[in-house]
Write a protein that binds this DNA or RNA. Sequence first.
DNA 1: CTGTATCCTGTGAGATACTG
DNA 2: CAGTATCTCACAGGATACAG
Lengths: 136, 136
Amino acid sequence: MSLKDTSENANCRAMSDVLNRIGDKWSVMVVGMLSGGTLRFNELKRQINGVSQRMLTLTLRNLERDGLVTRTIYPEIPPRVEYGLTDLGKTLGEPINALWDWSAANHEAIIAARLAYDARHKETEAPPARKYAGAA
Amino acid sequence: MSLKDTSENANCRAMSDVLNRIGDKWSVMVVGMLSGGTLRFNELKRQINGVSQRMLTLTLRNLERDGLVTRTIYPEIPPRVEYGLTDLGKTLGEPINALWDWSAANHEAIIAARLAYDARHKETEAPPARKYAGAA
DNA sequence: CTGTATCCTGTGAGATACTG
DNA sequence: CAGTATCTCACAGGATACAG
């Protein structure tokens, strides 16, 4: 199925749906982390630099709900919870990896393109504090 | 390069950066549309169902800035502007397609997982308004 | 340790109106 | 037709405090 099918809402919605998960950087991080094996909550939190407890919890819940991540509670004291990828989660790892590779391969090109673009438009574009053209 | 490298900030940032573009559904749509050939502004607007003029403009600007999309102005009356993919944009199409395929293939599984999850948690837990912004 | 509830802020994004 | 500017609202997400 090609990308051209916006009118075909079924696929379009599927993609949007998945994109909402993929596009979330924390989800991607979590899937990446867990691809190396199961981890506990705080292990994840430590390894994923910059994630807040709240976001990690929400991310994990969403991933779990979508059937991508498993959550195993060990009713001990202190409590222990381990997260891992489901089979579905593992298959998702592949397209994500493709994207990761693409990013690594082309990030520089993008940066360069941005610089070029900005340079190109610095001449054309006017300063930010310009409201009306009243007097000047 | 594996996904495991959050500590390795270079790749991590590259990924985040790219993800910010990929994660945006309009960007994905535009790239998808343009993969079939160049289109004019309003052609895009019509074909991408639900996009506002504003968002389409912003999306196109970002894609152009990132070197993924070309913008060609024909100084006619009425004005005509055509958008197309750059080579870089085309290469991006491939991982995106992989994701698209994954979505198509696994969307049902995800839907099912969600239903299962919701059912599983309706018994255990019974909070109707799960979002904090709900009742206020 | 593993979460949930709350507050607060910035930003994303639609609607609308105007310009060239 | 193509695009910019502005207003507005909702929501994502960080910080924090509390609970099991």
